[in-house]
Nucleic acid binder design. Structure first.
Ligand SMILES: [Mn+2]
Ligand SMILES: [Mn+2]
Ligand SMILES: [Zn+2]
Ligand SMILES: [Zn+2]
Lengths: 147, 147
DNA sequence: AATCCTTTAATAACTATTATCATCTGATAA
DNA sequence: TTATCAGATGATAATAGTTATTAAAGGATT
């Protein structure tokens, strides 16, 4: 691992009160040292090359820990199960990052996406979709109650 | 089912050479007759109220059939498995609707999202994310070869 | 009504994720 | 340095989500 990456890892662990274990170090490295948007399984395969006895459950658990600490992000806040949309009109979505609920947002309530320059060559664009991510009304209310 | 919805269903089935079965009718109705972004399991539960002997596999198969025919949409083209992003800088994504690959798109390559009016009250916005959906270079190349 | 082809129900198989728990280890202070 | 212990790990069972298989049933066409 690059010295710089290692130091950053130690710092992040300290900041978030996490033990800097070998497993966490390698999981972090597997993600940060190369581009891409990997699945837990892919990270597991990568880390196993250095730590053959690591458990897949450890990978899952630490990814959650890292996400919770804000050290990493998830690509999509609604990966859990397949969701079907019967609204065939162009429109956007409000997505709650807490309960994962999805509601329609009128197409005209957001301006068009402006492209500066060009997309990477070879990519055949079909459409832009915009998601407004945040906390829905119900979750905000539930949160407030607790305090 | 509303007469209008029923006629639309028959028309769509004819257009796409699909037998207009009871099961398909109820699956279509479960989606179209109410707002929301349902999972196959949720649709199954709804349809079972009318057709108690329907199989979950039938729901899955027909959702795929409908999607393929363009009668419905999926909310996200990358729901399959959890994907982690180690890039903490604000940025967007190119998503291939064919192979589901995800690549980064520089934040500045797209203009800011313009909000016309207000979001539904109670929703606490964290950020907008934009996905450029289309066919990636590799998939386009593979497609071209076949012809 | 008979035939053909599609669709369905049931269920096994498979993939993805989470829970459980005995054991181990990193961090801290003696 | 060693002892201590909360927190972390590995093994694996359990659960959730999806796909494959196949015999039987049902639309469509004649
Ligand atoms: Mn929608
Ligand atoms: Mn990214
Ligand atoms: Zn919510
Ligand atoms: Zn592709």
């Amino acid at each position: 691992m690059r010295r710089e990456t290692y130091n950053e890892f130690r710092r992040l662990c300290q900041e978030h009160n996490l033990a800097a274990t070998h497993q966490r170090e390698k999981i972090y490295e597997a993600l940060v040292s190369r581009p891409g948007h990997y699945s837990p399984e892919e990270i597991y395969e990568q880390v196993k090359q250095d730590l053959p006895s690591i458990s897949l459950a450890t990978v899952y658990k630490n990814l959650k820990t890292f996400l919770h600490a804000g050290m990493l992000r998830e690509v999509s806040p609604h990966h859990g199960s397949w969701r079907i949309d019967a609204n065939r009109h162009p429109h956007h979505h409000l997505v709650c990052t807490h309960c994962r609920s999805i509601t329609d947002l009128d197409f005209d309530s957001l301006g068009p996406v402006k492209l500066h320059g060009k997309l990477p060559s070879g990519f055949r664009l079909e459409k832009f979709t915009i998601e407004a991510q945040g906390i829905c009304k119900a979750c905000t209310a539930a949160e407030t109650k607790q305090h």
